[in-house]
């Protein structure tokens, strides 16, 4: 009952949220390669758990998207007022911030966009400020994508903040040019009960052959999912999937997505987990998606992972709870 209510609230929020976003004239630059919102930051393009384990310092999900565009010139994604710009110091004796050249634009629809990883055009210095109201038209050149601390060579980043709802929004919803026909890949799904000392996480994908049961004890389990998605077919980067749904005995128990990250005092909250954002990613590189109560008896668990275009991969397992 509780979960039905939660899903209904999430649905209403989704409709209200995307409704306001739909009226926003925002153009995500057309890209040949993308690392999407929620993707583990450290090794760009890799959500592979084994690879990521060696890169703990960046073991957090992205709150932006990284793009490799066809042309290096990056244009303002929408009209607005420039409220902040930073650039790399021309001399190494002065510290430069890791986002590299970056421009933050306040849009009239109450969003702030931040485009980074650029070498800024001189116009960004000369035309902004000094009573020019810092206004910028959609399509105006911001600079060239060259990469920076967070982006590889030639990449830039786009992030979008919703002021009204205090959320970092997934900008891929505004990339109307995306045509993805490849479903995400579910690498593994784990059930973990932190109270059961010494018990290894239960793997739903690999441990049991067809027609057999997985056996476990009655408890509340954390569900974590390792999955990757290729947003642009044939590109080098893998991204986090968009939506993860866990169905227990035909009823939706968990329905979560990388639609946005909410702002908390301790940082960012992804997939409904508490901030900081590192709490959404487990040591094995899987995303912590929620908790389910498994009571004694036989159960069917379905895991549905989908991407932005609605392509879906599923996994179905039977569990015997003792």
């Amino acid at each position: 009952m509780k979960s039905t209510k939660l899903i209904a609230i999430c649905f209403l929020f989704f409709i209200a949220f995307l409704g306001s976003l739909g009226a926003f004239d925002f153009q995500v630059p057309t890209a040949a390669d993308i690392a999407g919102f929620g993707t583990i930051l450290a090794p760009l393009g890799s959500s592979n758990a084994k690879e990521s384990q060696t890169a703990k310092p960046g073991f957090i999900p992205r709150s932006d998207i990284a793009l490799k565009t066809e042309y290096a010139e990056i244009q303002a994604p929408s009209s607005g007022a420039v409220i902040y710009s930073q650039h790399e110091s021309p001399l190494a004796s002065v510290f430069s911030f890791p986002l590299g050249g970056a421009v933050a634009i306040l849009h009239p629809e109450s969003y702030i966009s931040l485009v980074s990883g650029l070498v800024l055009d001189d116009a960004m210095f000369n035309q902004t400020g000094k009573g020019h109201e810092n206004s910028l038209k959609k399509g105006a050149s911001l600079g060239q994508a060259i990469g920076s601390g967070i982006y590889p060579e030639g990449y830039c980043g786009v992030r979008l903040f919703d002021l009204k709802n205090s959320l970092w929004i997934n900008p891929l919803f505004l990339a109307s040019w995306l045509h993805d026909r490849t479903a995400p890949v579910i690498q593994n799904v784990w059930l973990t009960n932190g109270n059961m000392q010494g018990n290894a996480p239960i793997e739903l994908k690999t441990t049991v052959s067809r027609g057999k049961y997985i056996e476990c004890q009655q408890a509340t389990y954390e569900v974590s999912v390792a999955a990757i998605d290729s947003i642009i077919p044939g590109s080098r980067s893998f991204s986090a999937p968009y939506k993860i749904v866990i169905v227990l005995d035909g009823k939706t128990s968990i329905d979560t997505s990388f639609i946005a990250a909410s702002c908390k005092n301790e940082g960012l909250s992804f997939l409904g987990n508490p901030a900081p954002s590192s709490k959404v990613i487990l040591e094995n590189g899987a995303y912590l998606v929620g908790r389910i109560l498994l009571q004694r008896g036989q159960h069917e668990i379905e895991v549905h992972v989908s991407d932005y275009a609605g392509n879906e991969s599923s996994l179905k397992t039977s569990i015997m709870v003792n």
């Binding site: 930051l41 450290a42 890169a55 310092p57 960046g58 957090i60 992205r62 709150s63 932006d64 510290f95 430069s96 911030f97 890791p98 986002l99 601390g149 967070i150």
Partner: peptide, 18 residues
């Protein structure tokens, strides 16, 4: 995973996403 920044005999790492 960031840029090191030293000040006042303290060392900091500003995370790559700032």
């Amino acid at each position: 995973y960031g840029y090191p920044w030293f000040k006042s005999s303290r060392r900091f790492m500003i995370r790559a996403d700032q």
